[in-house]
């Protein structure tokens, strides 16, 4: 199976996780979306050298994954895709910022090291929280949540279409790539000289396919609206739950729990 096909399957594997029935899955999508946004803002708001304060936030993905019964592997695989970018960004700090920040067991910890670890933890937390959100909430539900939060319909519609057409486009690339490779068995990929016509054909084919899909949609009454499942009702208890989580996150943001525990242990 080609890499393109594998990528399509990876997208749908994550989507299939949303059909589980756990407390987290049953939460209204608006609450989950807001919770994720609040978590992300809190994590990002930490300074570039504030590392210890971030550690308690690692509990968030662990806790949610446990309750939502999300397997580790599919999420970690996707996390690994994001990590190399972070590593490059973080490593450059280690070389350019060598000013000592603290001593840890006789080892000098530079500011660059702290920034590197901080970027790394922030990436892990951000990517994991978004992955958990999409593993527990279907795309339709997420789109509804966006509308509920008054994000303009045109933007929500664009997100919906992009998501739908992603697999269609990948399918077209896969078919064309196979047709190319079968007639160019000595090539490892598409030659640069053939790339222009290949991409041109891809655009034309994608337009044709999109046209047919649009016709099929029109034939079933599509008039440009956003199609989604009827929303789950947001109860007062849900809002209360969101407030509690937000308060806990804010406390963790301003009270360094790791430092407190360290002081208690060391004395």
């Amino acid at each position: 199976m080609s890499e393109i096909k594998k990528s399509i399957n990876r997208i749908s594997n994550l989507e299939e996780l949303t059909y589980r029935d756990t407390v987290i899955h049953r939460l209204p999508p608006v609450i989950k979306l807001l919770m994720t946004v609040i978590f992300l803002v809190t994590v990002i708001s930490f300074g570039s050298e504030q590392v210890s304060g971030l550690f308690p936030f690692l509990l968030y993905p662990v806790l949610l994954m446990t309750v939502a019964e999300i397997p580790m592997r599919p999420l970690l695989t996707r996390l690994l895709i994001a990590l190399p970018f972070t590593l490059f960004a973080g490593l450059s700090n280690m070389f350019f910022s060598k000013e000592a920040a603290m001593m840890l067991g006789g080892i000098i910890i530079t500011k660059g090291m702290l920034v590197f670890v901080s970027i790394l933890i922030k990436t892990i937390l951000s990517v994991m929280s978004v992955l958990i959100l999409v593993s527990t909430t279907s795309m339709n539900d997420l789109l509804y949540a966006m509308l509920y939060l008054h994000i303009p319909t045109i933007i929500v519609l664009q997100i919906m279409m992009t998501f739908r057409y992603l697999s269609v486009l990948a399918g077209e690339i896969s078919v064309m790539y196979h047709a190319y490779i079968l007639r160019a068995p000595r090539e490892k990929g598409i030659k640069l000289i053939d790339m222009g016509p290949f991409l041109g054909q891809l655009i034309i084919r994608s337009f044709d396919r999109a046209d047919r899909i649009y016709h099929a949609m029109k034939c079933r009454g599509f008039e440009g609206g956003v199609i989604f499942s009827e929303h789950k009702k947001v109860r007062t208890t849900h809002w209360l739950g969101l407030m509690i989580v937000s308060v806990v996150l804010l406390i963790l943001r301003f009270v360094n729990l790791s430092e407190l525990i360290g002081q208690l242990v060391i004395g």
Partner: peptide, 14 residues
């Protein structure tokens, strides 16, 4: 209408 290619007709996530 049932289209010739079912892939044109099945575009939602499930």
């Amino acid at each position: 209408v049932v289209f010739q290619n079912p892939d044109d007709q099945l575009f939602m996530s499930s």
